[in-house]
């Protein structure tokens, strides 16, 4: 087992344990904070696989943005922070069957795919390539993304905005 493998299993462990804690913890604020480690571990695995852009995006958007949004969502909701989430286990048989089928499908896919082996030992930065593609080949998509973001901005703000105090 090389150092690369050790680091990979470290990140995988962080991701799995924190994801498990997100589901099982009773405190919703703690769940949100455990989600931070899940996102971080996934970012680490991206970096290990040599996907530098996605790793940075994962850190910026998920850890920096979405998690803050989730935390605000928790904090803005009145009386939710002291509520203990009651997560019981029901429909065990049906759940086990569905999970078994899903895990089996994932496993067969994993075993039948020819993966790139050890891609992350030398880091080739992909950002200039993505930039060239965005400016040249996918320029229309790039501008459409701007419009999509504009729509999301206007829509999200008009839904979340406080009602106008008309008096």
């Amino acid at each position: 087992m090389s150092l690369y493998d050790v680091i990979f299993y470290l990140f995988a462990l962080v991701t799995l344990v924190s994801a498990f804690m997100v589901v099982t913890t009773k405190n919703i604020v703690h769940a949100a904070f455990y989600l931070l480690f899940t996102f971080f571990g996934v970012a680490g695995i991206y970096a290990l696989l040599g996907a530098d852009f996605i790793a940075v995006v994962q850190l910026m958007v998920y850890v920096g943005g979405i998690l803050v949004l989730i935390l605000f969502g928790v904090m803005l909701t009145n009386k939710i922070t002291n509520v203990q989430i009651r997560s019981g286990s029901t429909n065990l048989v049906a759940a086990a069957v569905v999970i078994g089928i899903f895990a089996g499908a994932l496993l067969t896919m994993m075993l039948n795919t020819r993966w790139l082996v050890n891609p992350g030992k030398t880091l080739i930065t992909t950002i200039p390539q993505i930039g060239s593609l965005l400016v040249k080949q996918y320029v229309l998509i790039f501008e459409l993304l701007g419009i999509l973001l504009l729509i999301a901005l206007v829509g999200a703000a008009s839904i979340a905005r406080k009602e106008e105090r008309e008096k």
Binding site: V61, G64, G65, L69, L134, F142, G146, A157, A160
Partner: peptide, 18 residues
Amino acid sequence: RFYVVALIFLIFDVEVVM
């Protein structure tokens, strides 16, 4: 207000990524 600001921040975060 914090939530609206966080939403706006998220959109501009994605913009920076692009």
